[in-house]
Design a protein around this nucleic acid. Structure first.
Lengths: 233, 233
DNA sequence: ACACGCCCTTACACTACGTGCATGTTTGCA
DNA sequence: TGCAAACATGCACGTAGTGTAAGGGCGTGT
């Protein structure tokens, strides 16, 4: 009968590929994009904390009420940028072969992020977040959300290889540590390069990501922290 | 002459030990305590999100405006509980000998937390935070703040042993990973014991903390399903 | 002891956030 | 074409958080 689960069109909203994007889907996506664009513009022009939801809605050509239909707050609208970034990382991770050592997969996925197109928006949000408590809070949330997703991704992978009886502690500790190391690499990169997007700078970021994964993989071997990696290069 | 730097009384507000707590200090401390107590009471009785700042102020016998003189939000008032918990861990860490392997210090500091008096309030906040987005956000903030402090503590320690030129990436990656592993242990503990404070349960927590530090120290190599058995692919 | 000055509390007012609700408009489907 | 669901919008309301100015307690100097 016609008791289909509401959306008979079968729009692939949940999956990644929109097979037949209906008009409504397109409108919603466009509005969503307009909101984040407007928010980002205002963030750039007025600085964090110097504009209101009404300003965003106005710039996006919608009502204040509609804004809240899409995002729960200004920060949530901005956080979607970070979410996109982290989702990219996650996608990369899922593409890695299941029998690869998991830290290698993580490293590979993270290194993929050191790409101008990918880091540019995050670098911007990140640097702005350094001086804005509101923003940094939602950033934390985004990272935490990503951790949860990594846990799921890793669980899925282990379920395929080990099949059963997955060590929850191992999963959560690993995922959290990977994210923390990635964040540490980003922190150091920003401190060192100030969010510069030049090839040299990105190369530094890539190196930092690799290095941090190396530290994690070696259990932070009691090598003196005063010597980054003297024998390597 | 009388050009003293204002506070001639020299109240030790900045340091930890109030040698001669003035009346004002005592009043403020009492008010602060009254606020957190009232907030915690309301959290227990009405559940998260079902009371306002005015309710807290009312219960604490102060005005709404005064509440905001002490805390920036309801969550901040509750978060002070978590801050106390994490500060305890940090204190323990600082007490460890500087020549001890840093992961051993971290493990020792974390294990000290598996104490009824210490975990009790956190367990409560934590379990409530599981179902409340607002709370969990401020919890994240507290953990992040603690990470920053661990970085400082570790930097200080390394400065004593290594003296100079500290690897910032090592510091941040390590501190973040330690905190993540501690959080992972707490997560698993809650999932397994539901915040039970019995000796048996606390023993489990202690074991989980030790185990997570062990995973970190071994580079998560121990029982990865993708261990040296790449016969498949 | 008295008065002065500082810190803290409080009341008032104001902006902005976030949500429920009712209404008008668009889209999908029969 | 007409109906029903989804969506945008305006309105109203409660709450959060902050600036400001007045009043009371507290420490201090004379």
């Amino acid at each position: 009968m016609s008791s289909l689960p509401s959306s008979a069109g079968g729009q692939a909203a949940a999956s990644g590929e929109p097979g037949v994007p209906s008009r409504r889907e397109l409108n919603k996506a466009a509005t969503r994009q307009a909101i984040t664009d407007a928010a980002l513009d205002l963030l750039r022009s007025r600085g964090p904390g110097n504009f209101t939801v009404e300003d965003i809605a106005d710039a996006a050509g919608i009502s204040r009420r509609t804004f809240f239909n899409y995002f729960g707050s200004t920060e949530a609208a901005l956080a979607s940028v970070t979410f996109g970034f982290l989702d990219t990382a996650l996608q990369q991770f899922r593409l890695r072969p299941a029998d690869e050592p998991i830290l290698d997969s993580a490293r590979a996925a993270l290194v993929e992020l050191a790409d101008p197109m990918t880091v540019a928006p995050v670098a911007e949000i990140y640097s702005l977040g350094q001086t804005n408590p509101q923003l940094s809070r939602s950033e934390l949330e985004a990272w935490d959300h990503c951790t949860e997703q990594i846990i799921e991704a890793a669980r899925e992978r282990f379920a395929r290889t080990a099949g059963h009886d997955i060590d929850e502690l191992y999963l959560r500790a690993l995922a959290g540590s990977v994210i923390s190391c990635g964040k540490a690499a980003l922190d150091v990169w920003f401190a060192r390069c100030g969010g510069d997007l030049s090839p040299d700078s990105l190369s530094v970021l890539r190196q930092l990501l690799i290095e941090s994964m190396g530290l994690l993989g070696s259990g932070f071997a009691s090598h003196s922290p005063a010597t980054p990696s003297p024998d390597r290069h």
